[in-house]
Computed example of a mutant assay.
Amino acid sequence: MLTITHDSAVRRWRAGLLCALASASSFGLSGPLARGLMNAGWSSVAVVAVRVLLAAAVLVPIAVVQLRGDWQLLRRNATLLTMYGLIAIAGTQVAFFNAVAHMQVGVALMIELTAPIAVVGWLWLRHRQPPAAATVAGAALGIGGLAMVIDIRTGQTTSWVGIAWAFAAMVGAACYFVLSAQGNGVLPGTVLAAGGLLIGGFALLALGVIGILPLRATTNPIVFDDFTVSWWVPLLLLGTVTAAIAYVAGIAATRLLGSRLASFVALFEVLAALVFAWALLGEAPRPIQLLGGVLIVIGVIVVRRGE
């Protein structure tokens, strides 16, 4: 009996790890693709709105099948769906894409993915679980690495607007991990993703139509480092790969691994984004920023062991 239980736990962990890596890799592609669109004249809000609504169009038919006519399930989880759509999806993406409009994709992402430390802090405050010494040490390493990523010594090249947006994205990412774990066993992950994408997408469109947020799009070719593509190519990839696949896989990973562990595995997104940004945009990180990224990764691993 114990062997069966252990084997089941191992299979669950492996499945969760694969989902988390798939989600992180998919999310890592979003920044470079969005940067290409914004360089061609798109506003960050327009990129996010089209991205999430395309993803919703992919996932809604699947979600309808999974609901099996139980529309009351949506009403009972209306608060979760609304918070997920407005904060975890729309808010986080707008903040991140505004950050990459002012700074390198890899740097913005490294700041955003200090979210695991925020998750640990939230769970400590929410459930009164004080952190272990290793957790405190890991957080200190993460903060030190963050200072190196920002590269304070070269203040003349630091975009404090970009940093502020990146920290806002970090808060949104922490909310994403906490909210994704809710509704497990009750609300299917695809339904949560599809509902959140619809709510977030239509909210952004509404704010754009009334003039609160800038909605600006063009049909100019999208120029990357060594090649040029039509405007619809990065949009299609943003909607299907970096949103539909990424969110469903991310929700599955969080429910299989828990908020803490899933948020730490998501650090793989930093490596994926650095590779994609280097390949598509020619953005090579400075050595001190690479060292800072290493310290952030070490810090959150230490935090995880402490937890």
Score class of each variant (00 low, 15 high):
residue 117 I to G: 13
residue 260 R to V: 14
residue 162 G to D: 10
residue 234 P to W: 01
residue 46 A to R: 08
residue 19 C to H: 09
residue 209 V to A: 15
residue 220 N to V: 10
residue 184 N to Q: 15
residue 172 G to Y: 06
residue 224 F to P: 07
residue 140 A to Y: 01
residue 155 G to Y: 14
residue 143 I to N: 03
residue 132 A to G: 15
residue 221 P to D: 13
residue 232 W to V: 04
residue 52 V to L: 10
residue 127 H to E: 15
residue 156 Q to K: 09
residue 142 G to R: 06
residue 9 A to Q: 13
residue 21 L to W: 09
residue 109 L to S: 09
residue 60 V to P: 01
residue 236 L to R: 03
residue 291 L to W: 13
residue 1 M to D: 11
residue 124 W to L: 02
residue 153 R to S: 14
residue 226 D to I: 07
residue 189 G to V: 02
residue 202 F to R: 01
residue 134 A to G: 12
residue 171 V to W: 07
residue 180 S to N: 12
residue 99 A to E: 06
residue 196 G to K: 01
residue 17 L to Y: 11
residue 33 L to P: 02
residue 2 L to D: 13
residue 159 S to F: 08
residue 151 D to Q: 08
residue 133 A to D: 04
residue 270 V to A: 13
residue 75 R to T: 11
residue 121 G to T: 01
residue 240 T to D: 01
residue 50 V to T: 14
residue 287 P to S: 07
residue 210 I to V: 15
residue 136 V to G: 05
residue 194 A to D: 00
residue 171 V to E: 04
residue 100 V to K: 03
residue 151 D to P: 06
residue 279 A to I: 13
residue 78 A to N: 01
residue 123 L to E: 13
residue 303 V to G: 00
residue 190 T to C: 12
residue 136 V to D: 01
residue 11 R to T: 09
residue 245 I to S: 09
residue 145 G to T: 04
residue 5 T to P: 00
residue 257 L to T: 06
residue 213 L to V: 15
residue 192 L to V: 00
residue 60 V to F: 07
residue 85 G to K: 03
residue 295 L to I: 00
residue 274 L to R: 00
residue 16 G to H: 02
residue 80 L to A: 05
residue 90 A to S: 10
residue 16 G to S: 04
residue 75 R to C: 06
residue 105 V to C: 08
residue 247 Y to V: 03
residue 108 A to C: 07
residue 267 L to E: 02
residue 76 R to N: 12
residue 97 F to M: 12
residue 236 L to N: 02
residue 52 V to N: 05
residue 201 G to C: 10
residue 262 A to H: 06
residue 241 V to W: 15
residue 241 V to K: 05
